[in-house]
Amino acid sequence: MAFRSDLESIVLAALQEGPLHGYGIVRAIRGRSEGVLKLGEGQLYPILHRLEEDGQISGDWEMQDGKPPRKVYSLTERGGGALVKRRLEWGAFSKAVGRMMQEVPKEAKSNA
C-alpha cells in the first residue's frame, strides 16, 4: 500500500472544517500542524485549481471592499469522499510505518 504523499490530501483536510480562501488554507495548515507543515504558498494554487477541475472542491469569488476579490474554496461531496478514502489510506500507512519505526526490544534482537 502506498500513500499518495502529495499535498492534495492536506488541502482537502484543511477544507473539511469549512470554506477557506487560499491564504486561509495556508493558515489552517500551519495552525493545525502547529507549524510543522510549511506549505510553499505559491505551490498551493495549482493544487487548488487541479482539485477544482477534478470536482473535489469548488471555488467562489468573494468581493471585498477596497481589496482585491478572493476565491473561497469549499469541499464538494466528491472531495469529501476522496478525503475519507485518503484518510483510511493514510491511517494504514502511518500505522505500518509506526510499527516499523518502533524500537525493537533487546530480547527479540538476541533471539533473531
Partner: peptide, 17 residues
C-alpha cells in the same frame, strides 16, 4: 482568464499575509 484569476488570488494572498 486562468492567468488573471491566478494573479488576483496571488495579490489577495500576498496582501493578506
Amino acid at each position: 482568464q486562468a492567468t488573471t484569476d491566478l494573479l488576483i488570488e496571488t495579490k489577495s494572498h500576498i496582501e493578506e499575509h
